[in-house]
């Protein structure tokens, strides 16, 4: 029974489309009137929203944290690498810095004396622990000869016993075969400094009547024609008067720790210099 031949479905659709905005407009005009039925839905919607917000926020945070973790992990690795690199550089820098200050001191010392000196580096030790010798990187081509004195800024170290073309072997004063002419700086008592292995040295042939006390500085006497006069050698550790001996038993502690020496000076020509005016060892100063 459709006289006007109207499409009912289309009509309903158009009516719905037109009526919905009208109803909405009408409802907006009377906001407070219909609140009672909206409230539970709003409440539910609010809770849903809250739940989804919390959920999405949680997901977002977790995802963010995970992504951050990946990023942090990468960053951490890169920072670790950077840290290692910097630590290595710092160590290298410290090493260079120390070497620089050592070389500066050597240079200052070299400039303050009129002796002909040549600086050298320690490159090797003795094969057998019974002997205290070192090898330096300077030899006969640099003007080194047998019997030349080897010293550091702190004090006497030993002397050249086997110069080769490019290297030289040095007999340290702590070796049992090493002898140096020594004098107690305070009382001017003469003696011979002899090595006694790694532990130190002794001052032999000092007369019983001489005044020797622990803490006295022993310097080179200059009679051996190896070391310049007045260069510090060791400190007196103990001095003992034995009943049956004509001389004192004097134990010495060398000023130079031969295990830690890296750079040395070889005296090519002492030019009769009295070193007591030039060098005062740091241990004594303090």
């Amino acid at each position: 029974m459709n006289f006007l031949n109207i499409n009912i479905k289309k009509l309903i659709f158009f009516v719905f489309v037109l009526v919905m905005p009208l109803i909405t407009i009408n409802m907006e005009e009377k906001q407070n009137d219909s609140e009672w039925f909206k409230q539970p839905f709003s409440w539910l919607a609010g809770h849903f929203q809250g739940f989804f917000y919390d959920y999405s926020a949680g997901v977002k945070t977790t995802t963010g944290q995970y992504l951050n973790l990946i990023h942090i992990k990468k960053q951490n690795e890169s920072l670790k690498n950077q840290n290692q690199e910097l630590s290595t550089r710092l160590l290298k820098f410290d090493e260079i810095n120390q070497e620089n200050s050592r070389l500066k001191q050597l240079l200052t010392f070299r400039e303050s004396t009129k002796m002909d000196l040549i600086a050298a580096q320690v490159i090797a030790r003795d094969l057998i622990p019974d002997h205290s010798t070192i090898t330096i990187n300077k030899g006969t081509v640099d003007g080194l000869k047998e019997g030349q004195a080897v010293m550091t800024l702190q004090g006497a170290l030993g002397y050249v016993f086997k110069p080769l073309k490019k290297t030289s072997h040095i007999l340290l004063m702590t070796d049992r075969y090493a002898v140096i002419d020594g004098v107690i700086q305070r009382s001017r008592a003469h003696g011979i400094v002899e090595g006694k292995g790694k532990t130190g040295a002794v001052l032999k042939y000092v007369e019983r009547t001489e005044d020797v006390r622990p803490g006295d500085l022993v310097v080179t006497g200059g009679l051996d024609n190896i070391f310049p006069k007045g260069f510090p050698i060791a400190i007196v550790e103990s001095a003992e008067k034995k009943q049956i001996s004509v001389s004192l038993k004097v134990d010495l502690k060398p000023l130079v720790d031969s295990d830690k020496v890296e750079e040395v000076f070889v005296v090519l020509n002492a030019k009769n210099q009295d070193m007591s005016e030039v060098v005062v060892p740091t241990e004594i100063k303090n």
Binding site: D126, L127, I128, H131, T133, L171, Y177
Partner: peptide, 8 residues
Amino acid sequence: IYSLFSYA
């Protein structure tokens, strides 16, 4: 050879 590397 040992003697070359030592004071011994």
